[in-house]
Computed example of a mutant assay.
Amino acid sequence: MKIVSQVKLLPASTHDADALAATLRACNRAANAASEVAFAKGLKRRNVLQDAVYHRIRADFDLGAQAAVRTVKKVCDAYATLKANLRAGNCGPEGSKRRARAESRPIRFRETAAQPYDDRILTWNLDQQTVSIWTLAGRLKGVPFVCSSEALQLLACRKGESDLVMRDGMFFLIATIDIPEPPVSQPDGFLGVDFGIVNIATTSDGQVMSGRQVNRYRKRKRDLRSKLQKKRTTSAARVLVRQRRKEARYATQRNHIIAKKLVATAERTSRGIGLEDLTGIRQRVTAKKDQRARLSSWAFAQLGSFVEYKARRAGVPVVRVDPRNTSRQCSNCWHTHRSNRTDQARFVCKSCGTILHADHNGSRNIAHRADAVWQRGAVNRPRTA
C-alpha cells in the first residue's frame, strides 16, 4: 500500500530559502503557461503536450530538462483529476453547472503550489538526514531535514516522486512510501463505530470520544476570526494570516489520535471495524442556522479515511454499512421507531424498555450490520490470511 511521509527542510541560509521559493514560483508559472496551451488546443495527454510546450517553458522560465518534464506531467495529472472528479460529481443541475464552469477555463496553479521531484533532481541521504535538490540557482546539496523517527524509517521504502511544498514560509518534502500490505485477518466479530458531532466517535464497547474539546476550540477560533475581521487593521490581518489552518491542523491531529485508538482496539481484540457510510449526509440533513457551522466543519470523511488506511496497515478489515435507522433501532430487540430516541444522548426502546446512551446503541447496531455484511460476503471484502 502507498502512504505519504512529510519532512521539514531547514535551508542553511536565506539564499537557499529564496532559491527554493523562486523555483516553486517559476515551475507554477510554467505550469500555468502549459495549462493554457492544453486547454486551448485540447492537448491533455502528456507526450502530446510535452512536444508542444517543452522548449517554450524551458526558455521562458529557465527550467531544467527534468523540471520541465515534471511540470508538464503535473498539468496533465491535474486535468485527469478534474475530469474524474467531474464525472463522479456530475449529478443533477448543480453538477451540470459545476462541470460547465470547470470546462470553461484552464486550470490555474498557485505560485506556491506543490512541485513534484523525481530521483534525477532530488537525492535523499537518510544517514545524514539531508537532501540534494535542484533549484533555479543550481543544485543545493546537503540541505538538512527533520522528521520523526517513524517517518525516517518509512523513508527507507520511498518510491516514486516527492513533492516540494511551501507553507507559511516553511518548506516541506512529501514523499510517497510503498510498504507491504499485510493480509486481512479473519475477524472475530466487529467493533461498531458511530460518528457524530457532539461525540466524535462512540464504539460498541461503550467507549465515548467526546467532541466537546474540538467544538469549543472551533468556536473560539470562529469568534477570534470574526473579531479580527471587524477590526480591519494591518495588525489584525497579520494575526489572521498566522491563524490560518491552525483549526484544521488541530482537528486533523485529533482525528489521527482517535483513528489510532480505534484500530488498536480492533487489532487487540481480533475484530474488524464497522463504519457508517455517510456519503452525501450534508445534502440530506437540514441544519438550523446556529448549527450549520458545526455541521460543515464536521470532519467525518477524514476520520473515516484515517481509520481505513491505519486498518489496512494493521490487517484489520473495515466494512461500511447503511446508516439508516441506526439511531432509532433497538440493538437488543430490533424494534425501530423514531420515538425510541428521546433526545440527543438518550435511547429508550418502547418495546423492550432497553435504556442506553443513544450513540452507544447506534454503534452496536453498526457492529451487528457490519458482521452481517461480512458473513454474506462484502462486495469489497479483502483477501484474508
Rank of each mutant, 00 (worst) to 15 (best):
T71D: 02
V198K: 14
G89V: 07
R99C: 08
R369D: 06
I197M: 05
S162P: 08
A78S: 13
F39K: 00
A100F: 06
S5R: 13
S351N: 14
D16L: 00
C349T: 11
G142D: 06
T135K: 02
F145R: 00
N365K: 07
S363A: 15
D359Y: 07
Q243M: 09
A293I: 09
K159F: 07
A378P: 00
L228C: 06
T112L: 08
Q128L: 12
D168K: 13
R105P: 00
K289P: 08
K44L: 15
G211S: 09
Q207F: 11
I107W: 00
A21T: 10
V198Y: 08
L24D: 08
Y217F: 15
K221G: 02
R271L: 04
A301E: 10
V4H: 10
V48A: 14
G362S: 15
G280W: 07
T23D: 02
V241W: 00
A114V: 05
D16A: 15
A151H: 10
H256D: 11
V143F: 00
V239N: 09
A236W: 08
A378H: 15
V37I: 12
L275T: 11
S270V: 12
R328S: 15
W134S: 13
R70Y: 01
I257A: 11
D18Y: 04
Q153L: 04
K41I: 00
D119Q: 09
A65K: 12
G272P: 09
H337K: 03
T265W: 01
I57T: 01
I174T: 13
V348I: 13
S305R: 15
C91Q: 11
R313D: 06
T286W: 01
S296N: 15
A34M: 04
Y217A: 09
G142N: 05
L155V: 05
G64C: 05
